[in-house]
Design a protein around this nucleic acid. Structure first.
Length: 459
DNA sequence: CTTTGAGTAGAT
DNA sequence: ATCTACTCAAAG
């Protein structure tokens, strides 16, 4: 630990929140930002122990820097970029798909389409994987995914063996077409046939709308889904010398439409449209509401539940308390343990994660026992070997105290509130469904008792 | 240059 | 839990 000290990010977050709430209370009007629990990943993508072979495709993604959920549509604005406060700008470049993912431009790290069939598609990558693609810069023809037999380990097969259909990601793109959503577009250096592709890495080129989609028989003889993307960004394209972004332009003439089937055209007004008065592209209708937590995953693959809360929903203490959640069970920690790599878990959860695992491994060669070898046991959140630490788990008493104090404070507050609650009835304004907030288990008196008893037992 | 095989995250 | 995916680096 001394040679490689780790910052306890949970504490960092809570302390910052506590400070912010203090300055808020003392009068300064302040914008409330969402706090994202994404700190458990390193700044760069890394390779886990299991991933013996190197290669970024086998790597776990690093920290997500932006505070958008993975189903966020449209440009990524500065308010979702706490790191730099500038948002993701048109023309930004990244080394590889994982880095691109970290800035939220395109989340899937292999797939070319980000989307959900019931919601729509948020972004695509032009990466040269499909021969039928045709890039004209301000507009391009994109091919759907699928139609290939990827059984076994044929990740790279480019041979189509069946027809594409409007399902899954292809359906998602179709929804974005029908609704007129802005779709973020990333170009990859791997698209060799396009003169608009970057020389290396990936580049964010702004948002496009899918004006039409259809199916046709592709170059390989099977049907492919086709999408006409037309640029509609407020910033000029990286290759353009324009001083301003796009203006609405007439659709290009597409000759293949003559042979097209299953044509989808937008019937309603587009959600993202050019406002003539403002001379800007903007949401003409409300963007779809996010159904996902702000992105953050731990390295075990379990989902980190990110709670986005409005400040008026919870008292400061409640918000602080929520930050002390176990990285395994996601509940407020009971008997908190802090690992040398600065991750926090309930004692029972951490023990549970290693049930059946032994500290030593027997080694036998031809019947003769060799000296047993130490087993590597990695932290559930990162690749650090914590086997030594596991041998003698010590509860983080300071943390436990803070948690207990917060709980009792909240309890006091609850009691006070109940006396005044009747008068406040009509000020109720609903609207956001961010999270089933508030009155859950951890705040009940019974639970507090139980915790208090645990503390006694510990003594 | 092409081929190979790996782990990962998201959708379903 | 299972399947899919416009990756990536190393090897052939």
């Amino acid at each position: 630990m001394a040679s490689q000290p780790r910052i306890n990010s949970t504490l960092v977050t809570v302390i910052r929140m506590a400070k912010l709430s203090k300055s808020f209370a003392s009068g300064g009007s302040q914008k409330v930002y969402h706090f994202v629990h994404n700190q458990n990943r390193p700044d760069k993508a890394y390779t886990t122990d299991r991933a013996q072979k190197k290669g970024k495709a086998n790597a776990a993604s690093g920290k997500i820097f932006v505070t958008i959920p993975s189903d966020h549509f449209g440009p990524i604005p500065s308010e979702n970029d706490p790191e730099r406060n500038q948002g993701v700008l048109v023309g930004e470049c990244w080394e590889d798909r994982l880095e691109c993912r970290q800035w939220g431009a395109h989340f899937p790290h292999v797939a070319g389409i980000a989307g959900q069939s019931s919601i729509g598609a948020q972004s695509v990558v032009l990466s040269g994987g499909y021969q039928d693609d045709e890039d004209h810069g301000e507009w391009f023809l994109y091919t759907g995914s699928g139609g290939r037999d990827l059984s076994g380990n044929k990740r790279t097969s480019k041979d189509q063996s069946f027809d594409q259909k409007f399902e899954k990601s292809n359906k998602a793109l179709q929804v974005s077409c029908a609704k007129g959503y802005p779709v973020r577009v990333v170009r990859s250096h791997k698209e060799k046939r396009s003169s608009y592709a970057p020389e290396k890495g990936l580049r964010y080129d702004g948002v496009y709308r899918i004006e039409k989609c259809w199916r046709k028989v592709g170059i390989q003889g099977f049907k492919v889904c086709r999408y006409l993307f037309v640029r509609c960004d407020n910033d000029p394209a990286p290759w353009a010398s324009d001083e301003h972004g796009d203006r609405p332009r007439p659709l290009p003439a597409i000759s293949e439409l003559k042979k097209a089937t299953d044509i989808t055209e937008r019937k309603e007004g587009p959600s993202w449209d050019f406002d003539v008065k403002d001379s800007r592209w903007k949401w003409a209708k409300d963007p779809p509401t996010s159904k996902k937590p702000v992105e953050a995953q731990d390295s075990t693959g379990k989902r980190t539940r990110i709670k986005i809360r409005q400040s008026h929903n919870m008292s400061v203490q409640e918000k602080l308390l929520k930050e002390f959640s176990c990285l395994i069970c996601r509940e407020v920690m009971s008997l908190p343990i802090t690992t040398p790599c600065a991750h926090n878990f309930c004692k029972s959860c951490l023990e549970g994660a290693f049930v059946g695992k032994t500290f030593l491994r027997e080694r036998k060669t031809g019947g003769r026992a060799l000296r047993s070898q130490k087993n590597v046991l990695t932290c559930p959140c990162c690749p650090t070997d914590i086997s030594d630490f596991l041998q003698n788990l010590q509860v983080n008493r300071e943390l436990l105290d803070v948690i207990e104090t917060l709980k009792s404070k909240i309890e006091e507050e609850k009691l006070c509130e109940e006396e005044e609650i009747d008068e406040e009835e009509e000020n109720d304004e609903d609207g956001d469904e961010n999270e089933g907030k508030g009155k859950d288990e951890s705040n009940s008196p019974v639970e507090t008792r139980k915790r208090a008893k645990v503390v006694d037992d510990l003594e």
